[in-house]
Design a protein around this nucleic acid. Structure first.
Lengths: 222, 222
DNA sequence: AATAACTCGTACATCACTGTTCGAGTTAAT
DNA sequence: ATTAACTCGAACAGTGATGTACGAGTTATT
């Protein structure tokens, strides 16, 4: 029997009781599988997740007593993951607009994954709990700082609220990722297209005149 | 009994058999309710829809034998609705960029609704069936024509695929609508913000220098 | 006023998912 | 090598959704 001792907080680090190594591994596997499956589709059963993690269904319930607990843990993990991914070179020192471009290039897919998880959580945990606890988490906060810095530097427009600019950033990423998922846009074309769309929308002074910055980006489905 | 005669194709106009007036009314009510509920949340049961339409659950099944049929009909209706909404004055004659602005102002919410339905359909009917039948429907086609015309006129940028520009248009609308739903953006601020974001991203020559075009749009949550 | 269309509630069969329990087998840790 | 932690499959109860069947009542149509 192992339900009572090890149960609920596989989530946060704070575990008073020690855990065996294989248990730890399984938890990781479950979280990984869940993250992957949720990113693909919102409707995933516990059974599917357990199976995908190479683990018995019972074991899953041993670590995450309810579906809600699982989703919760996945959100947490996804948030932490994104926070790391976003940490590119010179995040706090390089010109803000260049950092943005860098972010798009390095991690637009991962950031998209995070967004999908957010959808799942929103549907299953309800809007408020999610909003209160996670929305102002590390990722959003860092993006916020970055954009604000860009505004101070004069590279990023100041006529729109910072929050909206951040949202737009994720929004375009999201849109592009959906297009890729649907097979209407080649994944390798995405970064360039995202960049070409995002920059004029966010920058204070869209470079104009020089058509060097606006050459044909992609010919697919023109 | 009424299952066999009236059943399946409440959907398309093509009905050989005549229908009684109240039946017609109920079908409308059901479609309306479904559209409304689906726009709010993806997970809606048949029971809820029937109840919201002020109709017995059995009656619902009488007109739409399966959930799939219902979703199908709702998609159809939503598409038709959007096609009408999009038909603003001078759609085919006024400068394309001005028409775009006009579209945002008049119907961004409705267009958003259409997008939500698309999500439901995508989850329940599967990607391909939806794509094949509907994506190239009236709305998308018109938008496509409009953007293409704008490119010919030189007002809309030509370095990105038309498809992507259309997608971006809907994407930003969608993003903004979500923000409004979540209560992070006032609905009355939305059109201006959308416009301010969309135009620089889509136009060939973003007006630059004159900060008249980039005055403070909203102060909320800056 | 008569007929057929349409409505309703109730009840039933089926299914998929969630969460729990049991007992027995593995495996990491000391 | 012993113990406690962890694993597993199978089986069960509960819930909620889908779809069907019946029979009786209501309402549009002619």
């Amino acid at each position: 029997m192992f339900t009572s001792p090890t149960s609920y907080d596989a989530t946060v680090a704070q575990d008073t009781r020690r855990r065996r190594a294989d248990a730890e591994r399984n938890i990781e596997a479950i979280l990984d599988a869940a993250l992957r499956l949720f990113a693909a589709s919102t409707n995933v059963s516990m059974t599917e997740i357990a199976h995908a993690a190479g683990v018995g269904r019972v074991t899953l319930y041993a670590h995450f007593p309810s579906r809600e607990d699982l989703v919760d843990a996945v959100v947490e993990r996804s948030l932490a993951e994104s926070a790391e991914l976003i940490q590119v070179d010179g995040f706090d020192t390089a010109p803000a607009d260049e950092v943005l471009v860098q972010l798009v290039r390095s991690s637009w897919q991962a950031l998209h994954r995070h967004r999908r998880i957010r959808l799942v959580a929103q549907a299953e945990l309800g809007e408020q709990r999610l909003k209160a606890r996670h929305e102002r988490a590390e990722v959003a906060a860092r993006l916020n700082r970055l954009i604000t810095r860009g505004q101070d530097e004069g590279t990023i427009r100041s006529d729109l609220p910072v929050t909206w600019l951040v949202t737009t950033f994720f929004g375009i990423l999201h849109t592009a990722a959906d297009e890729v998922d649907a097979g209407w846009l080649a994944a390798e074309d995405a970064p360039a297209i995202i960049e070409a769309t995002l920059l004029p929308a966010l920058l204070a002074q869209p470079r104009v005149g020089d058509d060097a910055s606006r050459q044909q980006v992609s010919r697919s489905r023109s």
